[in-house]
């Protein structure tokens, strides 16, 4: 098992970095793709833990179906930018602060 040290370190950094980017990013499409990368990293973790059934299920559901449902929601709500600036009348009233 000693040759697994470097792949595990790379996988941990990839998963946590993708999760942080999914929360911080302002473009919602990039955040959804990062959630798919988190699911992919998790599927690799399940494979290292000797569980092939669970890895198959997570790869099929987490990467394919969750991403497509999120993208259909983005298409129907057309909110590409996160944390929407307030509409113009409230902006004028409060002097433009958030």
């Amino acid at each position: 098992m000693n040759w697994l040290v470097i792949p595990i370190i790379v996988l941990v950094i990839l998963t946590i970095a993708a999760a942080i980017y999914a929360v911080i990013s302002k473009n919602l499409l990039y955040a959804v793709v990062s959630t798919g990368v988190v699911s992919l990293g998790l599927s690799m973790f399940f494979f290292i833990l000797q569980a092939p059934d669970v890895a198959l299920t997570e790869a099929a559901i987490g990467v394919a179906l969750t991403t497509i449902i999120f993208i259909i929601t983005i298409r129907n709500t057309t909110e590409i930018e996160c944390c929407d600036e307030k509409k113009s009348k409230i902006d004028v009233k409060k002097g433009g602060e958030k």
Binding site: P52, D53, L56, T57, A60, I61, A64, L65, I68
Partner: peptide, 25 residues
């Protein structure tokens, strides 16, 4: 194949069903 051979190799009903749904998508 995945859901018919669920009791012989890794796989099963849920995995096979999701793969077929991806094809129709």
């Amino acid at each position: 194949y995945v859901f018919i051979h669920g009791h012989l190799s890794p796989g099963g009903g849920f995995q096979g069903g999701v793969i077929i749904a991806t094809a129709s998508l």
